[in-house]
Design a protein around this nucleic acid. Structure first.
Lengths: 417, 417
DNA sequence: CGACTTTCGATCGGGCCCTCAACGAAGTGG
DNA sequence: CCACTTCGTTGAGGGCCCGATCGAAAGTCG
């Protein structure tokens, strides 16, 4: 098993620094005394840790706590602008970038249309590097240096090597993205990560979910346009599989007599619920929503408009897709018992019509009473889920080990680049 | 998220003690110097930790390491007899017990036929308690005190409360097993755990798998007789789901037009691959293998014998079951990318005929080339997997925190009861 | 056969970290 | 103006890990 992690007291310190940062992220500004209670550490230790974090610029004073008798506490809060995380996104038709601050707030985003399969890996990585560099230049005045970059890819990824093993829809195979980005941007290689888009989307949705009061640690995220991907989180951890290929859910065999799939098999789930199936069901060939040159967002807007005015063919199509989604989701819920199933990708544009039929199928198809408590919801992040997840994944380096940010000699506002 | 674990240096010590115990379990007897290298700790620390473990009776000297020049190392090894773990098992037709020593070696096992649904929970727990007490009496001379008891149940379990939420095949609902066992045996309540049979089986198979040189941390375990259960391990951790209902795999909807299932729905996987489907396919009603009064082992022996002498109807039936298994396993492999799929329950009695058709389906039905490296193998533990897993789960208490075993005043061989 | 080399394991001092207790600081309420 | 309460800092204390040192126990080689 992976139990090989020797612990020294530097690691202990790291863990407790991270504990305070996490506590502040979840609960907002707190006084040292409150931090001590929330974290379970002693007041003395919290004082020491907070001083440390202040020196690193990760937290700062935030006024005094009001109310109550006794001496008011001096609030401590994260200094969101201390560092930033960068998420990059490659898709078939575009590349994108998201920059968030330490609190996970979005501070910059951009998307550029780009025929990725057409121009090939090298020029696509050029584009990515340019996006990253310009984004960094734009946010340089308002936020600290980036702690990392994570690239989202719709395909199979070797996260350890930072390479794309196989991305059929990009027509990529064995592309060393991390190396390429490091060479172009000058960023250190160990701060560049590559991951699957559904995995990153799942992490982003999990984070968005956990701003509420009820913590969620088991979640399934579905993303898709023409293909369908899945991201699974169990116990707060991503389910990656033995070689990182988990979540390849679009090719579940749902119907041995179904239509042929691009993978060569029949009746894969994505032939039933992929964007192709929806468009086929709701419009004829010459319909504008089936115009492949149109942007995906625009086509979704058309479908939404038709559904909103109760166009019967569109409603029927959505119901059909929703039911087929529900059958597959039932399998996932039976197997994984998530607290939430999040619909991302193009599904996120149509929750009003998809959630209900899915729920019905799930309640009917899951053994556990009440579907084991599983809720089905539309994504809050939509098409930016994966990119946001990439930025959060980059921030995780700091969140899990605040000592990666070097202490500053003085209490300067900005760290050097 | 579940990040709320304040760390003090007692916890640090605990972690490093556990690290040594784990290292010894995996690598066998090692000298202190080797332990230092393997664990990443310093020699000085290892010396201190080993002295601590010796005082607790968990390790002992085991000769000297041969070969090489320089002073020979004094080998340290686990003292397997220091403590034991107890696994109890409830099934429809029997109750059972397994006792293992600290190394996981089986030192006692017993199975008693018992009509559990007929006699009801109270008398079934009586039986369990009696099994546990007699087992403890029998092993008292050869092994130390039990560190815990884990009860395996074929159904939905609330592990936190130690209760069975729902076990249709036992006709149990909301049965407080842990409380009942504690009252009957006098064992402390916090050392009695309850878990699902497939989960425990998965953990047992994982442990059996990891005695080899290639570590496995992603595994799917299938168990079944008339119903089918699943245990999923990802990254070395059990996938439990948000309320512990993960792995309810028998009721995946595989065929909307399939036969009716006991759950009221149609085409559940277990209607295709459950024991009922096999028996129905391979024998007429009056055939002895369909005699419900016969022991399951015996019926499997008959089927094996027929298949071994190439009885066509039996071979066809096994091929049919194997193919249907393969379709479902393909879904699991696509979604979870395990390194191994272990066939437990009655499947474990027939691997020669089931593994091949499953493999074929999986290779054909999984997107990742070579099925993502997933191997399909028969269980090594057979029907005792869940019970053995229970004993291992009980031992985990010591393995993860060796300080639960109190230090002895002298180097006595046996600890007091 | 004896000195040298190599490796092992125990011990000691040092440094880091967390905790407890004590204390001054900074408010509120009477 | 004085208790009273709560906050945050400080210093003493103890636990833990680590590096260095040293004696012990082999093998090696002349």
């Amino acid at each position: 098993m992976g139990h090989s992690r020797p612990v020294d007291q530097a690691g202990l310190r790291r863990g407790n620094l991270a504990l305070l940062v996490h506590t502040l992220r979840e609960r907002g500004a707190l006084s040292r005394a409150q931090l001590a209670v929330r974290s379970g550490l002693s007041k003395a230790t919290v004082s020491s840790l907070v001083t440390d974090l202040e020196l690193r610029g990760l937290v700062h004073s935030a006024g005094v706590s009001a109310g109550g008798q006794g001496r008011p506490g001096q609030l401590v809060d994260l200094r969101p602008t201390s560092v930033c995380g960068i998420g990059l996104d490659i898709h078939v038709g575009h590349v994108g970038v998201v920059v968030t601050d330490l609190a996970g707030e979005l501070i910059h985003t951009r998307r550029v249309a780009c025929d990725v399969p057409g121009i090939g890996p090298e020029r696509a990585i050029d584009q990515l590097a340019e996006l990253a560099v310009t984004a960094l230049r734009e946010v340089a005045g308002t936020v600290g240096p980036p702690v990392g970059v994570t690239v989202s890819v719709p395909g199979l990824v070797d996260t350890a090597a930072g390479t794309v093993t196989l991305a059929p829809r990009l027509r990529w195979r064995d592309v060393a993205i991390a190396d390429g980005l490091a060479a172009r941007t000058g960023l250190p290689l160990d701060r560049i990560a590559v991951d699957n888009d559904a995995n990153l989307g799942a992490m982003a949705e999990l984070a968005a979910m956990n701003t509420g009061s009820v913590p969620v640690s088991d979640l399934v995220y579905l993303t898709g346009d023409f293909g369908i991907g899945g991201g699974v989180i169990s116990g707060g951890r991503l389910v990656r599989g033995s070689i990182g290929f988990a979540g390849e859910i679009g090719h579940m065999a749902m119907d041995p007599l179904g239509p042929y799939c691009s993978c060569g098999r029949r009746g894969c789930w994505e032939t039933q619920v992929g964007l192709g199936a929806l468009l086929h069901a709701c419009a004829d060939t010459d319909d504008p929503v089936r115009d492949p040159t149109l942007d995906l967002d625009q086509r979704m807007r058309i479908v939404r408009a038709r559904a909103a005015r109760d166009d019967q063919r569109t409603l029927d199509a959505l119901h059909q897709i929703g039911s087929a989604l529900g059958v597959g989701v039932s399998i996932l819920v039976n197997l994984l018992n998530p607290a939430v199933v999040v619909l991302g990708g193009y599904f996120a544009a149509l929750p009003e019509w998809l959630v209900e039929p899915i729920r019905n199928q799930v309640v009917a198809g899951v053994l556990a009473p009440g579907a084991g408590g599983a809720k089905v919801v539309g994504s809050r992040l939509g098409f930016t889920a994966a990119t946001t997840g990439g930025a959060l994944a980059a921030l995780r380096r700091v969140l899990d080990d605040p000592t990666v940010v070097p202490p500053m000699a003085q209490q300067d506002e900005e760290a050097p680049a």
